[in-house]
């Protein structure tokens, strides 16, 4: 499951940072005010469907990310002494 390249891993780390930020943004006014209309989706009020739908989506994405996040140390961390001849 380990991502093939360091840049893929870095992409996942950036995305993982954005996920809660995006979730927060989508759950706060003014975005959430867009879904307060009194309409129903299959009998469920729109706002309820929105909140629980968004919630499920966040969980699904977090699940997808969970095994793709890895420490950068393994590839990005470069010890300061690159001068040693063995390397």
């Amino acid at each position: 499951m380990r991502p093939a390249s360091p840049s893929t891993a870095a992409k996942f780390r950036d995305a993982a940072f954005l996920l809660p930020v995006a979730g927060f943004f989508l759950l706060l006014p003014p975005v959430i005010d867009l879904f307060t209309a009194r309409v129903s989706l299959f009998g469920i009020p729109l706002i309820v469907a929105y909140i629980f739908g968004l919630w499920s989506a966040l969980i699904a994405i977090a699940f997808w990310f969970s095994n793709r996040l890895h420490d950068p140390e393994t590839h990005a961390h470069v010890p300061p002494d690159t001068s040693s001849p063995g390397r």
Partner: peptide, 27 residues
Amino acid sequence: PADIFSRDAARILQTEDMFDARWIALT
């Protein structure tokens, strides 16, 4: 679920003034 929400859901949801400073603060 559709039946439950058809009963008086609007009174409970109070959507108009729900998403204010308190909503943000509580989250």
